[in-house]
Design a binder for these strands. Structure first.
Lengths: 248, 248
DNA sequence: GGGAATTAGTGTAAAGTGTACACTAGCTGT
DNA sequence: ACAGCTAGTGTACACTTTACACTAATTCCC
């Protein structure tokens, strides 16, 4: 085994991309680093994996230690291992991502994270390490996810209006959706419970409130269902080539 | 930086899952290990990443060194890092996968790989390390891939018949497809060039030969198009619940 | 209290896509 | 010539997606 010793000199970390939704805006949770390297810079909440710890466990622990967020479901997205990405040596990082309801959690930064704060995804600028690239990869994963399953569940407060749900989808997909078609689609999945309540204190017709039917949602996921949401495009009129009959 | 030294004691590897298609069967390339641990066992072609080497580069190099396959496009799939997965210490591995035309390559095993051989995916049994789990993860990725883009391009010889293409899809999806619908779908993508040639030496009506239109394929990928192929199911007759009109 | 402002909520027709299904065509081997 | 085999083709129906415009319910301001 001695011949392999030279390989046992690397380290690895986990980095978490936590998405939330608030004020019509898609947010990502960042920490302000209290340690070198990149002290004072904004970064994804991430840290070294302990030698006796599985990756998924590490991701959960690190997230909780840095931001106070516990009991979050994290999903592995991609691993980043460019040679020069960490100034301390060879460090590869496994990126995880999650979707949470911002209002359900209280953020408690640790010493490593001087501050932890939600940032608008669209307004994130420079980040420590290669975290910008990691964020982009996870954002793409989110875009893909939202087209294949009803993701709003994780991001919205328990009671919400259809318009809020639509705005969430629009924020993620960075596109506009047709109101009527969106509602038709969402309601036809039968995953929403109409609470028979309405908004209060708004200066216009109040909207109905809905909640997700958790039971049906579990079922939906278990069955591996999928659904699609397409951009509402103004009649792009595909010429739609006809299939040539071979063997004339 | 000394406080971090304890973290720089891990190693990481890459493992490659290479799929091919031959004799109507989906295959995966395995090596017979010539080294401890798991000497003599079948395993995915993988090895340690050098300290000064990027992950993607390492995956390519390792594949070529172990099996002689060069110039293969590899895609990262998932990272496996369970604590006890490697007997030599903490080793995490990044899994890559690829699709190749078996007939285009010659396999040349190295000393680490005593032998390298194509195995039917459906008949792979025990593998070294957690390679079985890695293989399954990559097979699932392939299934997903084949539903979202025309994957046959990578796996079939330059000239092929529509029936061969269909068999490939059926092998990957582990299902049967309707012949007419399959052809309609594939041809409607306009990615095939009808070569106006036919098979020779078969004891039945010879099939037409096609090749992929590489240019259109690139375009297809660039545009992020997607298409779906659904299992041909015998009329399951969804009762199709009507969307309730809220606000009666 | 009337009207302006604002967002919620609703239906339909037309185009496109997916699915089920059965027969004829063209070759080889005997 | 005919048996055996695989290639190749079209249509009708069900479902899904898309485009699109008006009325309803509330607050605010005068």
């Amino acid at each position: 085994m001695n011949e392999f010793n030279e390989y046992f000199k690397s380290a690895f970390t986990v980095d978490n991309v936590i998405f939330g939704f608030d004020e019509g805006d898609l947010k990502v949770l960042l920490i302000n680093r209290g340690e070198e390297p990149f002290k004072g810079k904004w970064a994804l909440p991430g840290y070294f994996v302990h030698p006796d710890e599985d990756l998924d466990t590490a991701a959960k622990r690190v997230l909780e230690e840095l931001t106070g967020l516990g009991n979050v479901y994290l999903e592995q997205v991609k691993t980043f291992g460019t040679v020069g990405r960490h100034p301390f040596g060879r460090v590869i990082t496994v990126a995880y991502f999650s979707l949470i309801k911002i209002s359900h959690y209280t953020i408690q930064p640790s010493s490593i994270a001087k501050k932890a704060k939600w940032h608008s995804v669209s307004r994130v600028s420079e980040l420590a390490f290669d975290h910008r690239e990691i964020l982009d990869a996870c954002f793409n994963r989110l875009k893909w996810l939202v087209r294949s399953r009803p993701v709003g569940f994780e991001l919205l407060p328990p009671k919400f209006t259809l318009t809020e749900l639509q705005h969430l989808y629009e924020a993620i997909l960075e596109t506009e959706l047709d109101k009527r078609n969106f509602r038709k689609k969402i309601l036809s999945m039968n995953l929403l419970i109409d609470l028979d309540e309405t908004q209060e204190g708004v200066a216009h017709r109040p909207a109905r409130l809905y909640e997700f039917d958790k039971e049906k949602y579990e079922q939906f996921l278990a069955e591996g269902f999928s659904f699609e949401l397409k951009e509402s495009k103004k009649k792009e009129k595909k010429p739609r080539k006809k299939v040539r009959a071979n063997l004339a």
